[in-house]
Nucleic acid binder design. Structure first.
Lengths: 145, 145
DNA sequence: TTTGAAATTGGGGTTCC
DNA sequence: GGAACCCCAATTTCAAA
């Protein structure tokens, strides 16, 4: 992970479809050399994945929220996380410190669907409490690199 | 936005570097037709961007946290958001409902850097309160489509 | 450097306002 | 007529050995 790898990552976090030739021009290296670095960065897991990020509104999901979830003790975290994976509204999820256990981000069509999501969560065996807040606006950032 | 667009998006949210030919095979269309749909999806903003997602740990950031931030009234949100943009540890930020105003996600090298980040935030004119929780583990999900 | 694969461009066709 | 689709073929560009 030298300066050049860093530079390659910086470009790919802005446009993940850049060709090796374009990347090569940016870092003054041959397309071949860049492809090799790219492969290594992927295999080492430094690049987790390259994905399209969609506009939730364009997908008909105009309401985003963060839901905090508390599990009762003795509850299977694995089972709960699998349930999350089957809810298409769930965009992100993380296990956190604090009085709740999970914080998840959901994108819903409308308030009715959000209510259905929270109800589905609260019905899940093991969920003892939830706390929902709406996302009013997302702030665009440059990110890690 | 028909079924085919939907299918294309589904594939691209899993692998954003799929070639048009591969996508074409998946949806039984020519590479050309797929490229055209791709262009339209980008121009309409449905595809916000395609970017590499990096492993924070590989980037030397092994400590993630969510920080809630309350601004005092009469504070310029714009100015505060610009300050966020200049902090490389800040990965995500959103304006939220609830007793805090912003929820941000940060990725730090260690607890010392996290402390520096929270101190920098608390020194910002207008920030009246913060509340920090650590991310213990992120859960992998499939996402919107 | 070379070779097969992929993207791009231009031409042409269809369908539906 | 024009817009939104699609395909094919030729050319240029790219990826990988």
């Amino acid at each position: 992970m030298d300066r050049i790898d860093h530079e390659i990552l910086r470009h790919l976090t802005r446009d993940g479809r850049l060709t090796f030739r374009e990347l090569g021009e940016a870092v003054h290296l041959s397309a071949n050399a860049v492809a090799e670095r790219f492969r290594r960065l992927q295999e080492s897991g430094t690049i987790r994945h390259i994905r399209a990020v969609l506009d939730p509104q364009a997908m008909g999901r105009s309401l985003e929220a963060q839901i905090e979830i508390k599990l009762s003790a003795q509850t299977s975290a694995l089972e709960f996380e699998n349930a999350l994976r089957h809810m298409p509204q769930v965009m992100e999820a993380a296990l956190m410190t604090g009085s709740f256990d999970y914080a998840i981000r959901v994108a819903c069509e409308n308030s009715h669907e959000l209510m259905q999501v929270t109800e589905a969560l609260r019905k899940h065996p093991g969920v003892s409490d939830t706390y929902t807040r709406l996302v009013l606006r997302e702030i665009e950032l440059s990110g890690m690199v």
